[in-house]
């Protein structure tokens, strides 16, 4: 059981800063894409340590598919 947290700050100009935690790898970007307007284009991305960790669930699924 793990907590996923996304903090979204929208300033008075409409600029957005989003910070994620509890996600592994690029899942955080996919999650943000689901939450935010598709037309919003990110200006910068600063990965955290979690970003470089592989999502264990995804890798486990891939292994099981490969094993069949």
């Amino acid at each position: 059981m793990a907590e996923q947290r996304i903090t979204i700050e929208i300033d008075e100009e409409g600029k957005i800063i989003a910070k994620t935690s509890g996600f592994k790898g690029e899942a955080c970007l996919e999650e943000l894409q689901k939450l935010l307007d598709e037309e919003i284009s990110p200006l910068s991305l600063k990965p955290t340590d979690d970003f470089y960790q592989k999502d264990t669930i995804i890798s486990q699924q891939k292994q099981s598919i490969g094993g069949k």
Binding site: E3, Q4, R5, I6, E9, I10, G22
Partner: peptide, 20 residues
């Protein structure tokens, strides 16, 4: 997600949490 919202002037802060 569970949503907590706070405001500072015209700024909006949303904290979204969920348990997986």
């Amino acid at each position: 997600y569970t949503i907590k919202e706070s405001r500072q002037g015209n700024k909006v802060k949303l904290v979204l949490t969920r348990t997986v």
